[in-house]
């Protein structure tokens, strides 16, 4: 490289990307490709016919789902509403529970370091557990029904919400808080008068965002017996009643899109 710098003759133009970078990128590319081929091989090893057979088969099977049976819509409307209600209740409870947790997990408010680290670690572990696994455990504990589903949603969304809100809290303007403290406000006064007004719009927006996540999660909780429309979907699939299942899937699709649309509009208006 030193010789290149000394004599920049036209025929010895240094390459745009250094050779070392090129080597690194090539190695990473082949490693990624290697793992990909291994994964493809691994995931298809129990499959008869392999990839091409599966894709060919796919279209013949997908035909069984059509046309969806529109007659079942009145029968599945009740469970669908129940599913939405599960998400509403779970989001509300999570939004209330998240406030102390988020404050404890914010570095700039919780100045007592061990407590902050403890809360953060707890939230990180909470977030690694998938919602359906929580639902499986709670169904084992409370039996089949709506309650284990709501509980699973609360715990699942608590992890996400507390993390997002603690990050919002960490990014607030600290000057009002210091001013409050300097003029003698105690911890609760500082939080109530200086912190909450600053984070309230983001808080509402994030709660709505988590509500969207909960709607998506709640429609499938029934697959493991935790109430809602997923339960019906699972039954219909079990009976190989594909047109009915397709109708349920379409209804889920419509509800998710409508709720996401409304929630996005509200969030845009908020921020």
């Amino acid at each position: 490289m030193t010789t290149d710098n000394n004599s920049l003759t036209p025929e010895k133009v240094p390459p745009i990307y250094p050779v070392k970078t090129k080597m690194q990128v090539t190695i990473i590319f082949f490693v990624v490709l290697g793992i990909y081929l291994l994964s493809m091989f691994w995931t298809q090893r129990q499959m008869a016919g392999g990839f091409s057979g599966a894709i060919g088969n796919m279209f013949t099977v997908i035909e069984k789902f059509f046309p969806p049976n529109t007659a079942v819509i009145s029968a599945i409307w009740g469970p669908m509403v129940e599913t939405i209600q599960m998400a509403i209740i779970a989001t509300t409870i999570a939004a209330i529970l998240t406030v102390p947790l988020a404050i404890l997990a914010a570095e700039n408010i919780t100045t007592f370091r061990p407590l902050y680290i403890l809360t953060r670690t707890f939230l990180n572990i909470l977030r690694t557990i998938p919602d359906l696994v929580l639902a499986v455990i709670f169904v084992g504990l409370f039996g089949i029904g709506l309650f284990p589903g709501i509980l699973a949603l609360v715990i699942f969304s608590l992890g996400i919400l507390a993390k997002l809100i603690s990050e919002t809290i960490e990014s607030v303007d600290m000057n009002p808080l210091e001013a409050m403290r300097a003029s003698g406000g105690n911890v609760f006064q500082v939080i109530w008068y200086a912190l909450i007004p600053q984070v309230l719009p983001q808080f509402t927006s994030l709660v709505l965002y988590v509500f969207e996540i909960n709607i998506r999660a709640s429609v499938v909780l029934g697959l493991v017996g935790a109430g809602g429309i997923g339960l019906i979907l699972n039954q219909q699939l079990g009976f190989y009643n594909y047109p009915n299942a397709m109708m349920i899937i379409i209804l889920i699709f419509i509800v998710v899109i409508v709720i996401e649309y409304i929630s996005t509009k509200i969030r845009e208006a908020l921020l």
Binding site: W42, T43, A48, A54, I62, V219, V256
Partner: peptide, 28 residues
Amino acid sequence: LSAVRAFPDIILAILFVVAVGPNAFAGV
């Protein structure tokens, strides 16, 4: 893209399990 996003992963998995059989490739 938003239409694709509206399907929860597990619903897609149900469809693919029916289509390609109950194996890991349906998950992929």
